[in-house]
Design a protein around this nucleic acid. Structure first.
Lengths: 187, 187
DNA sequence: CTTTAAAAACCGACCAGTTGGTTTGTAACT
DNA sequence: AGTTACAAACCAACTGGTCGGTTTTTAAAG
């Protein structure tokens, strides 16, 4: 039996994520990853032909996790404005995988900006969705940019707010989104 | 006088900025800087005892430039809300030195997060200033986070908006800030 | 105005460590 | 026998940083 291809690959990815989160972007090296998951570099290279391939896998992993949370939010909160859905998703991501998870974005930005294309496309799709509702477009964009600003500040480690304050801000943004109404216009 | 101490140091800094902007953070190496400004590495090391010292100088340069724009805005628009002032400053920075200038932040974040402390302190001061006016605190924070989100998206190269759209957004944010009133409450 | 000597600016070779990546080997499974 | 899944040794390029030496500037003395 191939010793355990799937779980080995996954173990490498998790090791890489672990490094990206708990150490800086600069320490995400192939040697480090190999050591962190108790493998030789040759082993790692067997699963990912080069570093870029590994980073791609990281990005995919990140996007898929996010999409998973988005889906769960969609199920619980139906017929809700896109911006509302987005804010709730962010909240959930924040609770569960911690924003540190997004540090992978920083690694990607540093290593190979092309990797961010996947992420950018995700944002573009969301803009298109917001444009479907021209009347609430701008208000939604502002709320969206605000939550992004808050996240980015935290991501770079320059947020002047405490976690408590950030929580308050997120809640207020959410309530602002809710006061924009629901999809059908009632409320 | 030594050959030209001031301008040599400045030339190194400008070379480093040039690299930080036009190439990725990873290419900001001492060798690269030296080559870019037509000097030997030894020469560079003479002006900056190590890479960190150079990066510090970059951050200082960035902060001082920003402060310069803020002052010019202060002169032209007196008695205006802090958030209003901040948005106008951002606009001016954007026009003149381009947001690419802020790419230095990314380099710093990647290389030595401690360097961001200066930047973080600047943000903290602004929060304190906003808190002086509790009635408009939250609205100001939202506008601020929004412009930050817009900038950060652009910084990472993931902005789903065109430059035209971003301009529209910035203008709208500014007009929202203006509708918050001026410092004295009239208007 | 010279001479002189210290100080500052700068060069270029070098170093140890790290990087992404390759090659070769080998044990296990099919 | 052949493929899969690794391990181990290895490599060239690059990293930040050091160091001995050379040139240029400055300032003081004659």
């Amino acid at each position: 039996m191939p010793r355990d291809k799937v779980s080995s690959r996954q173990k490498i990815i998790e090791s890489a994520i672990d490094i990206a989160i708990n150490q800086g972007p600069r320490t995400l090296t192939l040697d480090n990853v190999a050591e962190n998951c108790g493998m030789s570099k040759g082993g790692v290279m067997h699963h990912f032909k080069n570093k870029e391939a590994l980073l791609e896998a990281l990005m995919d992993n990140l996007m898929e996790t996010a999409k998973g949370y988005e889906n769960s939010v969609c199920e619980e909160h139906q017929n809700v404005l896109p911006i509302n859905r987005m804010l709730r998703t962010r909240e959930r991501v924040h609770e569960q995988v911690d924003l540190d998870y997004a540090r992978i974005l920083l690694v990607a930005a540093n290593e190979n900006p092309a990797l961010l294309t996947i992420f950018k496309n995700h944002l573009s799709e969301f803009v298109e969705e917001l444009k479907q509702d021209p009347g609430r477009y701008f208000d939604s964009v502002v709320l969206w940019l605000a939550i992004d600003g808050l996240s980015f500040q935290e991501l770079l480690g320059v947020s002047p707010f405490s976690e408590n304050e950030r929580q308050t801000i997120r809640n207020k943004l959410l309530s602002m989104a809710e006061s924009l109404g629901d999809k059908t216009g009632e409320n």
